[in-house]
Protein backbone atom coordinates (compact mmCIF):
# COMPACT_ATOMS: atom_id res chain seq x y z
CA UNK A 1 0.00 0.00 0.00
CA UNK A 2 2.80 2.29 0.95
CA UNK A 3 4.74 1.58 -2.21
CA UNK A 4 1.66 2.05 -4.41
CA UNK A 5 1.23 5.48 -2.92
CA UNK A 6 4.88 6.21 -3.51
CA UNK A 7 4.61 5.22 -7.17
CA UNK A 8 1.48 7.32 -7.52
CA UNK A 9 3.20 10.28 -5.96
CA UNK A 10 6.20 9.73 -8.19
CA UNK A 11 3.95 9.66 -11.26
CA UNK A 12 1.83 12.69 -10.39
CA UNK A 13 4.51 14.83 -8.80
CA UNK A 14 5.76 16.37 -12.05
CA UNK A 15 2.27 17.61 -12.95
CA UNK A 16 1.65 19.77 -9.86
CA UNK A 17 2.40 22.95 -11.73
CA UNK A 18 0.51 24.46 -14.65
CA UNK A 19 3.88 24.89 -16.37
CA UNK A 20 4.52 21.16 -16.63
CA UNK A 21 0.89 20.35 -17.39
CA UNK A 22 1.06 22.69 -20.39
CA UNK A 23 4.28 21.00 -21.45
CA UNK A 24 2.59 17.61 -21.24
CA UNK A 25 -0.31 18.79 -23.37
CA UNK A 26 2.13 20.23 -25.92
CA UNK A 27 4.02 16.94 -26.04
CA UNK A 28 0.79 15.00 -26.57
CA UNK A 29 -0.30 17.34 -29.37
CA UNK A 30 2.95 17.26 -31.29
CA UNK A 31 3.40 13.56 -30.62
CA UNK A 32 0.08 12.66 -32.21
CA UNK A 33 0.59 14.88 -35.27
CA UNK A 34 4.33 14.26 -35.68
CA UNK A 35 4.00 10.52 -35.16
CA UNK A 36 1.27 10.09 -37.76
CA UNK A 37 2.72 12.49 -40.31
CA UNK A 38 6.17 10.93 -39.93
CA UNK A 39 4.87 7.60 -41.29
CA UNK A 40 4.04 9.25 -44.61
CA UNK A 41 7.30 11.23 -44.65
CA UNK A 42 9.12 7.93 -44.23
CA UNK A 43 7.44 6.32 -47.24
CA UNK A 44 7.72 9.45 -49.38
CA UNK A 45 11.46 9.66 -48.58
CA UNK A 46 11.04 13.11 -47.08
CA UNK A 47 13.22 12.72 -43.97
CA UNK A 48 15.98 14.85 -45.48
CA UNK A 49 13.43 17.49 -46.55
CA UNK A 50 12.01 17.58 -43.02
CA UNK A 51 15.45 18.06 -41.52
CA UNK A 52 16.35 20.73 -44.08
CA UNK A 53 13.14 22.71 -43.67
CA UNK A 54 13.47 22.62 -39.89
CA UNK A 55 16.96 24.14 -40.09
CA UNK A 56 16.06 26.62 -42.82
CA UNK A 57 13.38 28.30 -40.72
CA UNK A 58 15.84 29.42 -38.01
CA UNK A 59 16.41 32.96 -39.41
CA UNK A 60 12.63 33.42 -39.41
CA UNK A 61 12.38 32.36 -35.77
CA UNK A 62 15.26 34.57 -34.68
CA UNK A 63 13.91 37.47 -36.72
CA UNK A 64 10.55 37.13 -35.01
CA UNK A 65 12.25 37.01 -31.59
CA UNK A 66 14.22 40.17 -32.40
CA UNK A 67 11.13 42.02 -33.63
CA UNK A 68 8.93 40.76 -30.82
CA UNK A 69 6.55 38.97 -33.22
CA UNK A 70 4.94 35.57 -32.59
CA UNK A 71 7.44 32.77 -33.23
CA UNK A 72 4.88 30.95 -35.38
CA UNK A 73 4.72 33.91 -37.78
CA UNK A 74 8.51 34.10 -38.01
CA UNK A 75 8.76 30.36 -38.53
CA UNK A 76 6.22 30.50 -41.35
CA UNK A 77 8.13 33.32 -43.04
CA UNK A 78 11.39 31.40 -42.57
CA UNK A 79 9.85 28.29 -44.16
CA UNK A 80 8.62 30.28 -47.13
CA UNK A 81 12.04 31.88 -47.71
CA UNK A 82 13.73 28.50 -47.26
CA UNK A 83 11.40 26.73 -49.71
CA UNK A 84 11.85 29.41 -52.37
CA UNK A 85 15.64 29.45 -51.89
CA UNK A 86 15.81 25.66 -52.23
CA UNK A 87 13.64 25.73 -55.36
CA UNK A 88 15.82 28.43 -56.94
CA UNK A 89 19.11 26.76 -55.95
CA UNK A 90 17.84 23.46 -57.34
CA UNK A 91 17.67 25.06 -60.80
CA UNK A 92 21.32 26.15 -60.87
CA UNK A 93 23.15 24.21 -63.56
CA UNK A 94 25.92 21.93 -62.37
CA UNK A 95 24.58 21.78 -58.83
CA UNK A 96 22.66 18.64 -57.95
CA UNK A 97 19.57 18.89 -55.80
CA UNK A 98 21.02 17.48 -52.58
CA UNK A 99 24.00 19.82 -52.75
CA UNK A 100 21.77 22.79 -53.53
CA UNK A 101 19.58 22.00 -50.52
CA UNK A 102 22.63 21.55 -48.27
CA UNK A 103 24.13 24.89 -49.37
CA UNK A 104 20.88 26.81 -48.90
CA UNK A 105 20.05 25.20 -45.57
CA UNK A 106 23.46 25.68 -43.98
CA UNK A 107 23.48 29.24 -45.33
CA UNK A 108 20.12 30.04 -43.76
CA UNK A 109 21.01 28.24 -40.54
CA UNK A 110 24.25 30.22 -40.29
CA UNK A 111 22.35 33.44 -40.90
CA UNK A 112 19.97 32.51 -38.12
CA UNK A 113 22.82 31.86 -35.68
CA UNK A 114 24.47 35.14 -36.70
CA UNK A 115 21.25 37.02 -35.95
CA UNK A 116 20.77 35.19 -32.67
CA UNK A 117 24.27 36.10 -31.47
CA UNK A 118 23.69 39.80 -32.13
CA UNK A 119 23.65 41.98 -29.00
CA UNK A 120 19.96 42.86 -29.51
CA UNK A 121 18.96 39.20 -29.34
CA UNK A 122 16.63 38.72 -26.34
CA UNK A 123 15.97 35.20 -25.09
CA UNK A 124 19.06 33.79 -26.74
CA UNK A 125 19.77 31.05 -29.14
CA UNK A 126 19.23 28.10 -26.87
CA UNK A 127 15.44 28.12 -26.73
CA UNK A 128 15.15 28.30 -30.49
CA UNK A 129 17.69 25.59 -31.19
CA UNK A 130 16.64 23.10 -28.53
CA UNK A 131 13.09 24.16 -27.83
CA UNK A 132 11.37 25.37 -24.73
CA UNK A 133 8.54 22.97 -24.05
CA UNK A 134 8.19 24.30 -20.49
CA UNK A 135 7.77 27.82 -21.83
CA UNK A 136 4.63 27.33 -23.93
CA UNK A 137 1.74 29.63 -23.09
CA UNK A 138 -2.00 28.89 -23.19
CA UNK A 139 -2.33 30.73 -26.51
CA UNK A 140 0.59 28.70 -27.92
CA UNK A 141 -1.26 25.55 -26.90
CA UNK A 142 -4.52 26.70 -28.43
CA UNK A 143 -2.82 27.47 -31.72
CA UNK A 144 -0.94 24.17 -31.64
CA UNK A 145 -4.19 22.28 -30.99
CA UNK A 146 -5.82 23.98 -33.97
CA UNK A 147 -2.94 23.20 -36.30
CA UNK A 148 -2.71 19.60 -35.09
CA UNK A 149 -6.43 19.18 -35.77
CA UNK A 150 -5.87 20.49 -39.30
CA UNK A 151 -2.97 18.05 -39.86
CA UNK A 152 -4.95 15.06 -38.57
CA UNK A 153 -8.06 15.94 -40.58
CA UNK A 154 -5.96 16.36 -43.72
CA UNK A 155 -4.23 13.01 -43.15
CA UNK A 156 -7.65 11.38 -42.71
CA UNK A 157 -9.03 12.83 -45.95
CA UNK A 158 -5.85 12.24 -47.96
CA UNK A 159 -5.22 8.73 -46.62
CA UNK A 160 -6.21 6.79 -49.75
CA UNK A 161 -4.48 9.20 -52.14
CA UNK A 162 -1.30 9.04 -50.07
CA UNK A 163 -1.50 5.24 -50.23
CA UNK A 164 -1.91 5.28 -54.02
CA UNK A 165 1.03 7.64 -54.62
CA UNK A 166 3.31 6.03 -52.03
CA UNK A 167 2.61 2.57 -53.43
CA UNK A 168 3.27 3.36 -57.09
CA UNK A 169 3.71 6.98 -58.12
CA UNK A 170 3.70 6.23 -61.86
CA UNK A 171 0.30 4.51 -61.85
CA UNK A 172 -1.33 7.13 -59.66
CA UNK A 173 -2.64 9.21 -62.55
CA UNK A 174 -4.35 6.14 -64.01
CA UNK A 175 -6.14 5.76 -60.67
CA UNK A 176 -7.36 9.34 -60.70
CA UNK A 177 -4.79 10.71 -58.25
CA UNK A 178 -2.42 13.56 -59.12
CA UNK A 179 0.95 12.80 -57.50
CA UNK A 180 2.09 16.44 -57.62
CA UNK A 181 -1.00 17.60 -55.71
CA UNK A 182 -0.44 14.89 -53.08
CA UNK A 183 3.25 15.83 -52.77
CA UNK A 184 2.43 19.50 -52.31
CA UNK A 185 -0.25 18.68 -49.72
CA UNK A 186 2.20 16.52 -47.78
CA UNK A 187 4.88 19.24 -47.83
CA UNK A 188 2.37 21.83 -46.59
CA UNK A 189 1.41 19.48 -43.74
CA UNK A 190 5.11 19.00 -43.00
CA UNK A 191 5.54 22.77 -42.81
CA UNK A 192 2.58 23.08 -40.44
CA UNK A 193 3.85 20.25 -38.24
CA UNK A 194 7.32 21.81 -38.10
CA UNK A 195 5.86 25.13 -36.99
CA UNK A 196 3.97 23.43 -34.18
CA UNK A 197 6.80 21.19 -33.06
CA UNK A 198 9.64 23.69 -33.32
CA UNK A 199 8.32 25.58 -30.28
CA UNK A 200 8.51 22.55 -28.05
CA UNK A 201 11.53 20.75 -29.44
CA UNK A 202 13.48 23.48 -31.16
CA UNK A 203 15.13 23.74 -34.49
CA UNK A 204 17.60 20.90 -34.06
CA UNK A 205 15.48 18.30 -32.28
CA UNK A 206 12.18 18.66 -34.12
CA UNK A 207 13.06 15.97 -36.66
CA UNK A 208 13.18 13.40 -33.85
CA UNK A 209 9.41 13.52 -33.31
CA UNK A 210 8.77 13.21 -37.05
CA UNK A 211 11.11 10.35 -37.93
CA UNK A 212 11.88 8.28 -34.80
CA UNK A 213 8.33 7.17 -33.85
CA UNK A 214 7.48 6.33 -37.48
CA UNK A 215 10.67 4.29 -37.87
CA UNK A 216 9.90 2.47 -34.61
CA UNK A 217 6.27 1.81 -35.61
CA UNK A 218 7.49 0.47 -38.95
CA UNK A 219 9.29 -2.30 -37.05
CA UNK A 220 6.21 -3.61 -35.28
CA UNK A 221 3.31 -3.08 -37.72
CA UNK A 222 2.33 -4.53 -41.09
CA UNK A 223 -0.42 -2.12 -42.22
CA UNK A 224 -0.57 1.63 -42.68
CA UNK A 225 -3.54 2.26 -40.35
CA UNK A 226 -2.01 0.51 -37.33
CA UNK A 227 1.38 2.04 -38.15
CA UNK A 228 -0.10 5.56 -37.94
CA UNK A 229 -1.72 4.78 -34.58
CA UNK A 230 1.31 3.03 -33.08
CA UNK A 231 3.62 5.82 -34.26
CA UNK A 232 1.43 8.46 -32.62
CA UNK A 233 1.24 6.37 -29.44
CA UNK A 234 5.01 5.86 -29.32
CA UNK A 235 5.56 9.59 -29.81
CA UNK A 236 3.16 10.50 -26.98
CA UNK A 237 4.55 7.89 -24.57
CA UNK A 238 8.19 8.63 -25.34
CA UNK A 239 7.49 12.35 -25.12
CA UNK A 240 5.86 11.92 -21.72
CA UNK A 241 8.76 9.73 -20.66
CA UNK A 242 11.08 12.50 -21.73
CA UNK A 243 9.28 14.94 -19.47
CA UNK A 244 9.62 12.54 -16.50
CA UNK A 245 13.30 12.13 -17.29
CA UNK A 246 13.69 15.88 -17.47
CA UNK A 247 11.86 16.37 -14.15
CA UNK A 248 13.68 13.73 -12.13
CA UNK A 249 17.12 13.85 -13.76
CA UNK A 250 17.10 17.59 -14.23
CA UNK A 251 17.95 17.29 -17.90
CA UNK A 252 16.83 19.67 -20.66
CA UNK A 253 13.23 18.87 -21.62
CA UNK A 254 13.58 19.02 -25.42
CA UNK A 255 16.72 16.90 -25.45
CA UNK A 256 15.17 14.37 -23.02
CA UNK A 257 12.13 13.98 -25.27
CA UNK A 258 14.25 13.58 -28.42
CA UNK A 259 16.45 11.09 -26.56
CA UNK A 260 13.48 9.00 -25.44
CA UNK A 261 12.00 8.99 -28.96
CA UNK A 262 15.22 7.67 -30.45
CA UNK A 263 15.68 5.24 -27.53
CA UNK A 264 12.33 3.59 -28.31
CA UNK A 265 13.45 3.02 -31.89
CA UNK A 266 16.81 1.60 -30.80
CA UNK A 267 15.18 -0.72 -28.23
CA UNK A 268 12.63 -2.02 -30.76
CA UNK A 269 15.26 -2.48 -33.47
CA UNK A 270 17.63 -4.32 -31.13
CA UNK A 271 14.78 -6.34 -29.65
CA UNK A 272 13.56 -7.31 -33.11
CA UNK A 273 17.05 -8.36 -34.14
CA UNK A 274 17.41 -10.41 -30.97
CA UNK A 275 14.05 -12.14 -31.53
CA UNK A 276 14.97 -12.97 -35.11
CA UNK A 277 18.35 -14.34 -34.00
CA UNK A 278 16.84 -16.57 -31.27
CA UNK A 279 13.63 -17.65 -33.05
CA UNK A 280 14.35 -18.34 -36.73
CA UNK A 281 11.38 -17.29 -38.82
CA UNK A 282 9.36 -20.18 -40.23
CA UNK A 283 10.33 -19.85 -43.87
CA UNK A 284 7.73 -22.42 -44.95
CA UNK A 285 4.98 -20.12 -43.72
CA UNK A 286 6.58 -16.93 -44.94
CA UNK A 287 7.38 -18.27 -48.39
CA UNK A 288 4.78 -17.21 -50.97
CA UNK A 289 3.25 -19.91 -53.14
CA UNK A 290 2.75 -19.53 -56.87
Amino acid sequence: MHSTLAVLTWLTDPWQEALTRRALLEVVLLGVAGGALGCWLLFFNLAYSAESLAHALLPGLVGAALLGLPLLLGGAAGLLVGAVAVAVAGRIDGLDRDTAVAVVVTGLFGLGVLLALSPESPAGLQGLLFGDVLGVSDSDLLLAAGLVAVVLAALWVLHDRLLVVGFDRLSAAGLGVRPLAVDVALLVLLAVALLVAVQGLGNLLVVAVLMAPASAARLVTRRMGPMLLVSGLIAVLAGTGGLYLSYYAGTAAGASIAGMLVAVYVILALGGGLVRAVVPRDRALAQPSA
Binding site: F43, L163, G166, F167, D168, S171, R223, M224, M227
Partner: peptide
Protein backbone atom coordinates in the same frame (compact mmCIF):
# COMPACT_ATOMS: atom_id res chain seq x y z
CA UNK B 1 7.26 -0.69 -60.02
CA UNK B 2 5.35 -0.74 -56.75
CA UNK B 3 7.03 -0.68 -53.35
CA UNK B 4 7.15 -4.19 -51.97
CA UNK B 5 7.95 -2.93 -48.45
CA UNK B 6 4.77 -0.86 -48.40
CA UNK B 7 2.48 -1.81 -45.50
CA UNK B 8 -0.62 -2.73 -47.52
Amino acid sequence: RSRLDFPV
